Amino acid sequence: MGPNANTQSIVAPERAFHHGADLEALNDRFKGALPSEIMRYTLERAENPVVFTNFRPLAVAFLHLVTRIKPDIPVVWVDHGYNTPETYRHIDRVIKELDLNLVTYAPKMSAAHYDAVYNGIPAFDTPEHDFFSRTVKLEPFNRAMQELKPDVWLNGIRHDQNTHRGNLDVFTQGSHGTVRVAPMFHLRKVDVEKYVHENGLPDNDIYFDPTKGEEHRECGIFLQKK
């Protein structure tokens, strides 16, 4: 009998999350599922998941949900330098209360530097504002993706936030070869407000995103394809 006669080949399991995954089937499977069910399924199968947050109003609900299941998950924050003082104080409080494993990325040009050279935040829907968004948000976001190399990008977007997001779903293809997972996608704003209240979570509504301004706009992160 040869030395390999009783040896069985071992086949590594297929990755659950990749750009070839059947996301349509996953969306059908989890239609109507609780956010916690979606979160747990994802975290049990993801190889290198990360969370991206901007600490906007009600974002604490998503951070609370994910860290209850995986307390040490990297929470990536792009600090563009233009947050309100109230938002920065809120961020410090949430980091402490939820014991976040925070990973901060900042633009290569500080807000003070940008303002001095380019005279502050440019008008929306101009080439100058596109350059501003790339400088303060998209470049550090892409750098985070390239360095952390996640397979799953967890986020707290909902279908009712704007038209573009309403056309997405729980599981979608993200940039940098990731799968974006939005466990709270089918919730309404009132549902998230209730979650924050019932769990006694701190929140802050004195918030400003210089790359989008109004709630219905996109800053560009969710528009990237690669």
Score class of each variant (00 low, 15 high):
D28N: 12
L100C: 01
L187Q: 08
F222Q: 05
V192P: 09
D203V: 10
E218I: 03
H197I: 08
D115K: 03
A112R: 00
G200R: 05
D160V: 09
V136D: 01
E198T: 05
D99G: 05
A12H: 10
P122H: 07
P140K: 00
K225T: 15
L23G: 09
R68G: 10
P35H: 01
S36I: 09
D79W: 00
I91S: 04
V11L: 03
T87P: 10
V94L: 09
D28S: 12
Y118H: 14
G177D: 08
N119V: 08
M109H: 00
D115C: 05
I157D: 06
P3I: 12
H113R: 14
I95C: 13
V94K: 10
L102N: 06
R29M: 11
N101K: 01
F62T: 11
Y41G: 03
N48M: 02
Y88G: 00
I91R: 14
D72E: 05
N142L: 12
N27C: 06
V136S: 04
A112N: 02
L98G: 06
D99A: 07
G32F: 07
N27L: 06
I10H: 07
S133I: 01
E97A: 03
G200C: 10
S133F: 04
V170C: 09
H18T: 04
E47M: 10
V75Q: 03
R40D: 14
V76Q: 01
H197P: 01
I91N: 02
Q173N: 12
H18V: 04
R89F: 01
K31Q: 14
A182I: 03
A61I: 04
A21G: 10
F124E: 15
I206N: 10
L63F: 10
M1D: 09
L63H: 09
T172I: 13
G174W: 02
P57N: 10
L58N: 14
Q173Y: 11
C219Q: 05
R217D: 06
R180M: 07
E218V: 11
D99W: 00
L201A: 05
I91T: 09
N167H: 15
H159I: 14
A21K: 11
K31T: 13
R56H: 08
L168H: 03
K108G: 13
R15K: 15
R188F: 12
L201G: 06
C219V: 07
M39S: 13
E193N: 06
N167V: 11
R158Y: 14
G200Y: 07
F185C: 07
M39L: 13
I69Y: 09
Y82E: 01
L168T: 12
F131G: 01
V152S: 04
L58Y: 14
D72I: 00
L187I: 05
G220M: 13
H197D: 13
K194F: 04
A111M: 00
T53K: 08
A5M: 13
P3S: 13
F132I: 07
A16M: 14
